[in-house]
Simulated scan of single mutants.
Amino acid sequence: MKITIGSDHGAVQLKEEVKMVLKEYGDIEVTDVGTFGTESVDYPDIAEKICADVVSGKADRGIALCGTGIGISIACNKVKGIRCALCNDVYSAKMSRQHNNANVLAMGGRVVGFGPAGEIVRAWVEGEFEGGRHERRVNKIMAIEQK
């Protein structure tokens, strides 16, 4: 699996922790699109880079991080083909994959601690889309982009 990850200045530390969790899998290729320091940057720019990789197929999924996760998740969801889920708990992460086929995970560096973030990432990475009745609903969500 290929995952593109990025954060603004408010989640640089969380990004590094998440990368360590992803490394545990051994078979996940991670591309980090920044930022790499605490100097202020605009999260929409990071969101655009992550989502470009996902919609182009360069990455299978993306992980987007900012201070709260809210702004970057909103920006991600403006990109056609993206289903970004802001998850602050394991259950939401699991359901975002199983029921919504989320292709981008968002979290907040000032909201989620390192330990819980690792569990959220694991649930999301390991989650599989169930299809079935959920496929119909995801298709309806994606059809909204065409209007």
Rank of each mutant, 00 (worst) to 15 (best):
I46N: 00
G115S: 13
R83N: 08
E16N: 14
L86H: 10
C51E: 02
R110T: 14
I46W: 00
R136C: 00
E48L: 14
E17A: 15
K147P: 00
M95N: 01
D89A: 08
E39S: 15
R133Y: 00
C66D: 10
I46H: 00
I141T: 06
A85N: 06
A47K: 13
M95D: 04
F114M: 15
K78G: 03
V12H: 01
A64P: 05
Y43Q: 02
G57L: 14
S96H: 07
E24F: 04
V21Q: 08
D45G: 03
G81R: 09
F129S: 00
Y43H: 11
G34M: 00
L105H: 04
M142Y: 07
R61L: 15
H9N: 14
K147Y: 13
V30A: 05
R137Q: 12
E119R: 14
E119K: 13
V112R: 11
K80Y: 11
K78M: 10
A102P: 01
K140V: 02
I120Y: 04
S56Y: 09
Y25H: 10
E135W: 04
A123Y: 09
V112T: 13
N139R: 13
Q13I: 14
R136D: 12
K49D: 02
S7C: 06
I141S: 05
A106S: 15
G81N: 08
R61C: 03
G37W: 05
V54H: 02
I5F: 11
V55E: 02
G69F: 06
G127L: 07
I82V: 15
K15A: 10
R110V: 06
R110G: 15
I141G: 05
D53T: 03
F129G: 02
G118D: 05
I28R: 01
F114Q: 10
R83F: 07
V125D: 09
G127C: 06
N88Q: 11
A47V: 11
K80I: 12
V112G: 09
L86C: 05
W124E: 01
A52I: 00
V111H: 05
M1T: 09
W124S: 05
V90A: 08
E39Y: 09
Y91I: 15
T68R: 10
A117V: 10
A11M: 06
V54C: 08
V33C: 09
V30N: 02
A64R: 03
N100Q: 09
R110P: 03
G57Y: 12
G131P: 08
E135N: 13
G37A: 15
T4P: 11
T38A: 14
D53W: 04
P116S: 09
Q146M: 13
V125Y: 08
N101S: 12
L14N: 03
K2G: 12
Q146D: 14
